[in-house]
Design a protein around this nucleic acid. Sequence first.
DNA 1: CCTGAGTATATGAGAGTTCAACTAAATTGA
DNA 2: TCAATTTAGTTGAACTCTCATATACTCAGG
Lengths: 154, 154
Amino acid sequence: MTRWLDEDEQRTWRSFLGATQLINEALDRQLQRDAAMPHAYYVILVRLSEAPGRAMRMSELAARTGGSRSRLSHAVARLEERGWVRRERCPADGRGNLAVLTGDGRAALAAAAPGHVEEVRRALFDVLKPEQVRELDEICTAIIYAADGNTLEG
Amino acid sequence: MTRWLDEDEQRTWRSFLGATQLINEALDRQLQRDAAMPHAYYVILVRLSEAPGRAMRMSELAARTGGSRSRLSHAVARLEERGWVRRERCPADGRGNLAVLTGDGRAALAAAAPGHVEEVRRALFDVLKPEQVRELDEICTAIIYAADGNTLEG
DNA sequence: CCTGAGTATATGAGAGTTCAACTAAATTGA
DNA sequence: TCAATTTAGTTGAACTCTCATATACTCAGG
């Protein structure tokens, strides 16, 4: 009945789990140590910094960072306490909130970015041959495409 | 100074983050829904089930599951509450503890496994061409190898 | 034997995530 | 126009993880 994983698939799957776990841990450790924020918060700041007016609707921001609304609410609450983000009522839609990156938030991001990029290179890009980077891109794109399909179906 | 990511690298990096996040969420959702356990606990049960005598030292188990000792202590405490694992004093070393998989634990694992494997296939293997699976394996192996090197150096 | 250094694990507090309500505003439609 | 539904976002509780610390044991010297 069940299509169990064969030996090769087992090995690949465990490599995959191990590799992604190691990378996530490395990112979190580095950012926590050098910038006192978890990686998830860094991603939020990055997305906000790229938005026009450095502001974005909460839902939009949640979608772009790949997290739930609840998670984003809690996260933005913490970021607000630190003065890195502020909330504004959305003028067009009374239900909506805008998350706005503050000057302090931009500064925190600018301070954190170089060390973070360095870590990303060390953990991933420096380790792979250029052709492997291309392959990885295609693989991840396929995974995302399929997952979106599944989500929409289910 | 900083070697920023170029456009291709940015895209690849974000695909990678998105893909791994989606897979982890899918695994956790499926296991939580169908077997009432997080993926991390499933991995612990699997590793235990593969050990001789279905028993392993806590440190060893922590290393094999790629987690910290503290995390494993907490996790095993929860698994013990459910009756899936029990702790035994290590005969050879009075400081050590053995985590032992119980009959109920084996049953829980057996019940969870088919759905989990199905989810792994759906999220990863069904999505990739055989040659991509091979490439992914090599990529992940390279990442792990490099990360271990870094850990030992730093 | 002891004492001190190192190892194995546990524990508690703090932080982040998830899930399930809950509030409030917009939209639909009779 | 007004109730029903949907959408946006928040909140609180339960759970997991991390970090620092504590406890218990081993081992090597003196």
